[in-house]
Amino acid sequence: MLKEPKISDDQREIWREPINYEKFFKPRGEVHIIPERCKECNYCTNYCPKDVLERSPTVNSHGYHPVRVRPGKEDSCVACGMCQTICPDFAIFIREVQT
């Protein structure tokens, strides 16, 4: 986790908004899960930097609890793709959403 940089109040006063501020945006991702493939290894839930994923209470046909998006975190994914890269079962992927 990145720590908030320490900025004193006088410093804060001389800060200004960057002129190209509007070019930058926080990417947003849409989580797609294929529940039948999930084996509940918890790699994605552990590695998601935004803590978007969790084990769901439902069970798939192989007896595993597939991951799901944590309720209330639907808009938190930043499309870093870590879960997709780390998933051994090709059960989760991210599509970036244009905002």
Partner: peptide
Amino acid sequence: HPKHALIRDERFPNVWCPGCGLGILLQS
């Protein structure tokens, strides 16, 4: 899945145990 065209979709889920790293090797 974005890798749909590169994998034999019909063979998933794969034989590997939960937590096995081989799927990640395949991804890589």
